[in-house]
Amino acid sequence: MNTSTKMLNPPQIAEMLGVGVAKVHGWIESGELTAINVATTSGGRPRWAIEPDEFERFKRSRSSTSTPKPAKRYRQPAGVIEFYK
């Protein structure tokens, strides 16, 4: 962990992405978003901190890049010969 960077918390990430805090917690629990538990006591409620670099990686992994559709291929009817193309 780089101590010179400011860590993000789930409410900040939820606000940036326009989702609920529960959704961010779900990403953390599923392992999609890597977070560090910075709670002072073990066994209690976790306090999650996310590095900005990890947040950028997460955003890149979830961005949608549309693939171009393949060109439609038209089948020529059987028995038809085209002389002029």
Rank of each mutant, 00 (worst) to 15 (best):
L17I: 01
G18T: 03
G18N: 05
V19P: 05
V21P: 09
V21W: 06
A22V: 13
K23C: 08
K23L: 12
V24W: 02
V24E: 01
H25I: 00
H25P: 01
H25N: 13
G26N: 15
G26D: 15
G26R: 15
G26I: 03
W27K: 02
E29H: 15
S30N: 10
S30I: 01
G31V: 00
E32S: 05
L33D: 02
L33E: 00
T34V: 15
A35D: 01
A35Q: 00
A35H: 01
A35M: 02
N37W: 01
N37T: 02
V38H: 06
A39I: 00
A39Q: 08
T40R: 14
T41D: 14
T41K: 13
T41P: 08
S42E: 12
S42H: 09
S42T: 12
S42G: 09
G43H: 06
G43L: 00
G44R: 10
R45H: 06
R45N: 08
R45E: 03
P46M: 03
P46Q: 06
R47W: 10
R47S: 10
R47A: 09
R47M: 11
W48Q: 02
I50W: 04
I50N: 00
I50M: 04
I50P: 05
E51I: 02
E51H: 11
P52Y: 02
P52N: 00
D53M: 08
E54V: 12
E54T: 07
E54Q: 09
E56T: 07
E56P: 00
F58K: 02
K59L: 10
K59G: 03
K59D: 06
K59Q: 13
K59F: 07
K59E: 14
R60T: 09
R60C: 06
R60F: 11
R60L: 12
S61A: 14
S61F: 09
R62G: 09
R62P: 06
R62D: 06
S63L: 07
S63Q: 15
S63D: 13
S64T: 12
T65I: 11
S66Q: 14
S66V: 15
S66L: 15
T67Q: 15
T67E: 15
P68A: 05
P68Y: 06
P68H: 05
P68N: 08
K69N: 15
K69C: 06
P70K: 10
P70E: 06
A71N: 10
A71M: 09
K72L: 09
K72Y: 13
R73S: 12
Y74G: 13
Y74L: 11
R75N: 08
R75M: 08
R75Y: 07
R75K: 08
R75S: 11
R75T: 08
R75V: 07
Q76S: 11
Q76D: 09
